[in-house]
C-alpha cells in the first residue's frame, strides 16, 4: 500500500526506469499449506519456497502477486502475471484455456470435512470454493453445491452449520480438523479428482514454460522436491511423493 501511494504520485513517469526481466508468479494466498499470506503480509507456504527455488534454478528474477481465485485464470490471460502457482489441479477443462507444466505435486485426494463422522452428504448442501475441481465434482455428482469465494468461507460454512460438509484438498483440511478439538472431522470417504498440481501458463508462453519444466525436473531428479513436500510444516512425512517415478529420464 505504501508503494501504491508513491506510485500514484509518480504515475506520470514512465515505467522504463524499473525495467528488468521479472517473472511474475500469481497465487491465491489463502490456502495453507500450499500458499497463504503470513502475518508479515508476505506470501508463504510450500509454493513460496518451491517457486523461489524454481526461479533460482532457472536464473529468473521472480515477483509474487496475489489474486482472487475465481479470476485467477482471466488475469493470467490478461497478463497481470505470467505463472499461476496456486495449488491448481491439472484438468482437461483448464487445459483448453491455459497450458500446464508437468505436475509438481502428485495427484492428492480430496476430502470431506464435516461436523460428525456419520454426516450424510446427500442430506444437505456441500460447500466448495467457486471454480474449483471440487465444486464441479459436487455439482456433477448429485450433491447440492453451495459456493463461496474463498476456502476460509467454505470451512466457516461447515462450522456454523450452513453446509453438511466441505470438499477440498485433504492437505488443506487436515490441519483444520486436527486443530478443531474434535468439532470437525474428516470423513472416511475420499475422492480422487484432478491429475496432480501444475503451474499454469498462457498458451503463447512456451519458452517460459520450458524453463520452469526443466527446473521442476531437476528438482525431481536430485530429490529436493520430495524433501520439500515432506517437510513437517508443509505436507508432512506421510505425503505422497514422486519417488523413483520422478527420477525417470534424469
Amino acid at each position: 500500500m505504501k508503494k501504491l501511494l508513491i506510485a500514484t504520485a509518480l504515475a506520470g513517469f514512465s515505467g522504463a526506469a524499473f525495467a528488468q526481466d521479472v517473472v511474475r508468479l500469481g497465487t491465491e494466498g489463502a490456502y495453507p499449506p500450499y500458499n497463504f499470506i503470513n502475518d508479515a503480509g508476505e506470501v508463504a507456504g510450500f509454493e513460496r519456497e518451491f517457486g523461489d527455488e524454481l526461479c533460482k534454478r532457472a536464473g529468473l528474477t521472480c515477483e509474487w502477486v496475489t489474486n482472487e481465485w475465481d479470476s485467477i485464470i482471466p488475469n493470467l490471460q490478461s497478463g497481470n502475471y505470467d505463472v499461476i502457482i496456486a495449488g491448481m489441479s491439472i484438468t482437461d477443462e483448464r487445459e483448453e484455456v491455459i497450458d500446464f507444466s508437468q505436475g509438481y505435486l502428485p495427484p492428492a485426494s480430496s476430502a470431506y470435512l464435516a461436523a460428525a463422522a456419520d454426516a450424510d452428504l446427500m442430506s444437505g448442501p456441500v460447500a466448495a470454493q467457486t471454480s474449483t475441481i471440487q465444486a464441479a465434482f459436487v455439482a456433477e455428482n448429485g450433491m447440492q453445491l453451495v459456493e463461496y469465494a474463498t476456502p476460509e468461507e467454505t470451512v466457516a460454512a461447515v462450522k456454523n452449520g450452513e453446509a453438511v460438509a466441505v470438499l477440498a484438498d485433504k492437505d488443506y483440511l487436515a490441519p483444520i480438523a486436527a486443530e478443531s478439538g474434535g468439532a470437525l472431522v474428516l470423513l472416511a470417504k475420499e475422492e480422487s479428482i484432478g491429475g496432480g498440481v501444475g503451474l499454469g501458463f498462457r498458451d503463447s508462453d512456451d519458452d517460459l514454460r520450458g524453463k520452469f519444466d526443466e527446473a521442476i525436473k531437476s528438482m525431481k531428479c536430485d530429490g529436493t522436491l520430495d524433501a520439500m513436500i515432506t517437510k513437517a510444516e508443509y505436507f508432512g512425512p506421510e505425503a505422497k511423493t514422486w519417488g523413483d517415478a520422478g527420477k525417470e529420464g534424469c
Binding site: 475465481d70 479470476s71 485464470i73 482471466p74 490471460q77 490478461s78 484455456v97 448442501p125 460447500a127 471454480s131 455439482a139 447440492q144 453445491l145 453451495v146 459456493e147 463461496y148 468461507e153 460454512a157 450452513e162
Partner: peptide, 22 residues
C-alpha cells in the same frame, strides 16, 4: 450471501460467463 446449487441473479450468471469466456 452464497449461491446454492448455482442458483443466482442476473449478475451472478453474467459473471460466470465473463470468467469462462474472458
Amino acid at each position: 450471501f452464497p449461491a446454492f446449487a448455482q442458483k443466482g441473479d442476473a449478475l451472478y450468471y453474467a459473471n460466470y460467463f465473463a470468467d469462462k469466456t474472458f
